[in-house]
Structure formats: structure tokens, C-alpha cells
Design a protein around this nucleic acid. Structure first.
Lengths: 255, 255
DNA sequence: GCTATCATCTCACATGATGAGACGCGGCAC
DNA sequence: GTGCCGCGTCTCATCATGTGAGATGATAGC
């Protein structure tokens, strides 16, 4: 009798291994062949696969093979482009936040608002964002990065859609000034928000690039009060993290 | 005691339901909240999620929530490949079909059958395919392109897996002749199906290349009856469209 | 015909998932 | 401070349930 220090659902693990094996070869192999490869009895393999088929995670296919079923595809659909980035980024950002003792966030542009999809870490008292929350784009570091990498026509539309109310004395409220700022952000590859969204809140942000060059997400580090780290220190860390996210999400980076 | 006509792995099903519930809300909820929602004891929910985390299907996220883990992302990434192409291709193919007044399709090879993932346009009366439908590969333009770009060993396996029943008088039914045809298709970079799958149905097909050189999808133009456009006219359009799909899906083209 | 391979089904067994309950911890109210 | 509540963790007795050997049927090949 195995004493289990950490409870592990072993039958679940076995079934998932079978699922992966089925998906891995694109549905060509017979069940018996898979059973041999994984070293499980044929009857067990049949039961596992049959069960996965019944529940819609796999589907029978042509002669004996199996392919991904509707529920697996539905799962895939939920993890849309942006969510894929967020999921890949989560552990990386968590680590960064722990290292720096700062708040680290990831946001995407949905409509003309920034959706904050990840927020981790401690230390920025007057930072009001929460996961799932949406906020104006024109005044935050993440928002400026995302706007800066928008296609030309969409950026024009956004700029024409003002007004841009001031949240602090430093908020950029003029469309022309904002356009210039976005141009600068696009050029230098990062944005700095120095008290534009809340007094004393400083934040640096960089884009996460898609394989096709689009920018669907941006990550930022926020600090309030006495800044612990100067931007010059944070920027290379943030750049490295963005590259790491791209590798995790797409297998390579694009710079 | 449940008499099980079909053996169903119930604990697997429960764990997968939990996995889906976790993914569904984007990682915001606490384990206890999920347990309540699904009506399972908290201890069970903790064990399932902990187990999924340990195996890399989920990952902890910030404060209490969970998100998709690396293994799930890898699994979905494998499936995604083909669907990403289809998604990128859809608008391009729609445009092409509208321009030419033909049926335009995109298919992938799953197991040894072609899955038709996109069909758009009008004008090929006796073309029986529908989106999601699967059909034999050896006799269609798309199928021949996909087979032609298969790795050597898989192509051999396919050819050895006959027989190849005739659908029309022109269907290639001999494995050796099919091998020669596939070689030709591979050389010239396109396939022509002149009545091999249905009488009077003519179709030209070209591959869509992956960044790594594989060919997971092919696109085709089908015409029936009096061909409106000769292949020599269609081919450059189709090549251009394939290149456009590659740019849309991967950001560059590979030729 | 015989033989080999695969899928399906049955059944007795013990593996291992289950869920109630207890405990520790942290936050919040008062 | 003290008490309360919610959450995560751990233990343990119970028995549901996943397991695997073997039998049977189906199909293909020699």
C-alpha cells in the first residue's frame, strides 16, 4: 500500500497521458498500438479512450484512430488569443513580482478599454486595478503601449474619440499630445506612466508581440510612493520577461 | 450500485469538469467557490485541482486562482495549429470565392482522411463536401497535396494502407500510380483533380506551408461543368492566396 | 482452412478516490 | 485584545470504482 504524502489522482494522470498520446500522433494509431506504447493493458486503454470519447474529449475517426473531440476544441476556444498570452505569462509575472516586490500586471485592449487580466505582487498602495477590471487606455502605461501598437487607422479612430478627462494633474488630456506620446512609445518600445492615472503611482510597460507583429498584450511594473527601483533598472527586466512570455506562448520571440 | 452498460471513468469525468470550471472563469475564483458551484466537497475539489496543478494542467495564479498550465497549453497548441490556419484563411478565401464565382475550400489531413474546414462560394453543383466533413485523401486535389507533403514514412504507411476504390473512371486506384502522382504534386507545388472524385468536377489545390516547412493545410478551387476559368489562370491566384494565408497566420511566407 | 491482431465484454479483487471532520492560519469586526 | 468566519490542509475509515487477465467475436492475411 502506497503511502501518499501528496494526494495524486493517479487514474486521472493515466487517462490524461493516454489523451495526450492520442492527440500527439494526430489520430493515426490503433488503440492497441497506443496501449503497447504506454505499457498499459489493452482493455484499460480501450476503457480510457472509450470514456474520453463518450465525454466528448475525443472523437472516433475513420478507421480506428481518434482525434480531438468537441469538448477539447471548446476548451481551446475559450483560451482565445489573448487568454493564451495571459496563461503563458502568469507564472513568469508571478516570479517577477516576487523578485522585485512590486505589482506586475498584464493587460489587453478590448474595445477602447484596457482589460487587466493578471495582477500579482504587492506594494503599490493606491493602485486600484483588479483582475478582470477595465479602465481607460490613454492614461496608463499598459494602455499607452497597446494604443501605440494599434494599426494606424484604429489609433486615429481612438484619438478622434476623446475627450480624455484628467485623472491627475499629469494626465495627458490633449489628443495631439497623446498622439505624440504614442509615437514616442512606439519608437522607444516602452511606455512610462509617471503619475498620470494616480498621484505618485509610477509604472513602466512594454509590449508582448504576436508572431505576426501585432501587440495584443502589454505587461507593466507599478510602484507607488518612494520608487524602490528606477525605471532604468526595471526596463531590462521587463523586456526580458516579455521575451520569456513570447517564448512560452509561441515557442519563439520576435524582436 | 450503478450497473454500467458502458464503462465510464467517472472520477476522470469529474476531474475534467473541474478543470473546465477552472478554465471557464479565467482563474479568478477560489477553490472553495468552485467547489460550491459544482456541488462537490471542498476537500475533493482541492485534491483534484492540486493534482491537476502537480501534473502541469493547471497553474497557480496570484491569489488563490488557477489558470491553464503548460501541459494544457501544449496540448491545445497542437490542436491549434490547424485551426489557426483555418481562422487566418477564412476571410482571404471568402474574398477569392467572391472574385472568381467558384467554390473555394480549405482542408487538413487528420489521420488518413481530409477534413474540410472551410467551404465558401457557389458554383460547383456536384460538389458534395460540407464543412467539418471528412473524405478520402487519395482522390481529391486537397488530399493529394496534403499526402504529397507528408513525411516519407507516413506517406509510405498511407500508400501501404490501400485499397483505393474508384469513385469515377479517372480515380487513381493503384498505389504505385498514386505514389508517382504524389511525387509530381510535390515537385510542381500543386495538384489537379480532373474528375477523380466526381465526374466533371475539376479542382486545383496548393499547399499552405508552416514556418517549419510542414504542410498541414491545403486550399483548392473547384469548378464543375463548363470550367469558367482555365487552371493556368487559377493557379497564380491560388498561390497568391496561399502566401497571403501564411502571412496572416504566421507573419511571413515560406517559399 | 489456420493464425494473428484488434476490439469488446465479463468478473473478482484491492487500489485508490471519496467526504466528513478536525486543525491552522489570516483577515475583519467589534 | 477576543471572537468569528472563510479558506486551505490533513487524516482516516469506507466502499465505490478502476483495474487487468482471460474469454469471445470480428476481420484480415497467408
Amino acid at each position: 500500500m502506497m503511502r501518499r504524502g501528496t494526494p495524486t489522482l493517479t487514474s486521472l494522470s493515466r487517462s490524461l497521458a493516454m489523451l495526450e498520446a492520442v492527440i500527439a500522433d494526430g489520430g493515426a494509431r490503433s488503440v492497441a498500438a497506443l496501449a503497447r506504447e504506454l505499457g498499459v493493458p489493452a482493455a484499460t486503454a480501450h476503457r480510457q479512450i472509450h470514456s474520453l470519447v463518450e465525454q466528448g474529449y475525443l472523437a472516433r475517426h475513420g478507421g480506428g484512430g481518434h482525434v480531438a473531440g468537441p469538448r477539447l476544441l471548446a476548451l481551446l476556444g475559450q483560451l482565445d488569443e489573448k487568454q493564451v498570452i495571459a496563461n503563458a505569462a502568469a507564472p513568469v509575472l508571478h516570479q517577477l513580482a516576487a523578485d522585485l516586490g512590486c505589482v506586475v500586471q498584464l493587460g489587453t485592449l478590448d474595445g477602447d478599454m484596457v482589460t487587466y487580466r493578471i495582477k500579482t505582487g504587492q506594494g503599490a498602495g493606491n493602485l486600484f486595478t483588479r483582475v478582470g477590471m477595465q479602465h481607460e487606455a490613454y492614461c496608463s502605461g499598459i494602455g499607452k503601449v497597446l494604443l501605440a501598437h494599434l494599426p494606424e487607422d484604429q489609433q486615429q479612430t481612438y484619438l478622434a474619440g476623446g475627450p480624455f478627462p484628467a485623472l491627475t494633474a499629469r494626465t495627458i488630456t490633449d489628443a495631439r499630445a497623446l498622439a505624440a506620446e504614442l509615437h514616442k512609445v512606439s519608437e522607444q518600445g516602452h511606455a512610462i506612466d509617471d503619475g498620470e492615472v494616480a498621484d505618485g503611482l509610477i509604472c513602466v510597460a512594454v509590449p508582448v508581440h504576436q508572431p505576426d507583429g501585432r501587440v495584443l498584450a502589454a505587461v507593466s511594473i507599478s510602484q507607488s510612493g518612494a520608487a524602490v527601483h528606477p525605471p532604468a533598472v526595471l526596463m531590462p527586466r521587463l523586456q526580458a520577461v516579455a521575451a520569456e512570455i513570447e517564448r512560452a506562448a509561441f515557442g519563439r520571440t520576435f524582436r
